[in-house]
Amino acid sequence: MDTVYFLAAPITASLLLAAILSYFGNHILTRGIIFIDIAVAQVAALGTMLGILIGVQDGTLLSTVISLAFTLVILSLFSLAKFQHTELSREVIIGVIYCVALATAMLLVDAVQGGANFVQKTLTGSLLWVSWNDIVQMLLLFSLVICIHAFFRKQFIALSENSEQTTFSSYNRRLDLLFYVTFGFVIVQAVKIGGIFLVFMYLIAPATLAQLYTDSWNKRFVISFVTAMIGSLAGIYISYQYNFPNGPTIVCALGALLIMSILAQQKRLV
């Protein structure tokens, strides 16, 4: 019974993350900007690190605000610029952002106390040590975001489907910005708890799996949601049984689910 109590918080947290991120994943995949969240997460981590450097402790409100500010600036630039340079694809820009954020973080790593530790934490997260306080915060934020997305449901889907086009009305431009801003809020909060890789996997793996089976948005939302849930529970169970770190185990469980369904799909085609 003790273990159930101990694991209750991480399980709740991972299910919350699974729910919201598997939803966003469908948008991200349709837009074809797979690596945006790794880049954004790295920028957020850089913000936190700069905060530590000027004496703001990790985990305080101010530190969250700083990393949020960094993230929003980058995402707004990304959304507004709608890069006119056709020679450079958006993925290249994302790659360069990631590179620069990572390089700057690495320059600072020795100046910050416990820097190397912090780098690992941003990669793998600390799901096991999540507090109920964090969970309530997440729940509030995610509900708000979901409400916004439910309200602009049709518009957001249309934007994601036409993300290649470069001319937008100013209304659509603002909507696009709103999409990225909500995304930024979610990523900053999610990375703090789950780490970059878990967040990335929650975004991409369930959505990819869903895309294997259907094109309809509603079905994709449902399939990816269910996949993310199964992956989380299986991952946490395995990590508890074999004493593995749980974030990474969930990542591997989701990977295994995806591989299995690709194989199943191949067989069906042959």
């Binding site: 991409i204 990474p248 990977g255």
Partner: peptide, 20 residues
Amino acid sequence: ICMEAVIGITYAVATTAAVI
């Protein structure tokens, strides 16, 4: 499946598997 998605997933799994 989008190729970038497969690449990304390979990246994430390889890294976290190494961490485990």
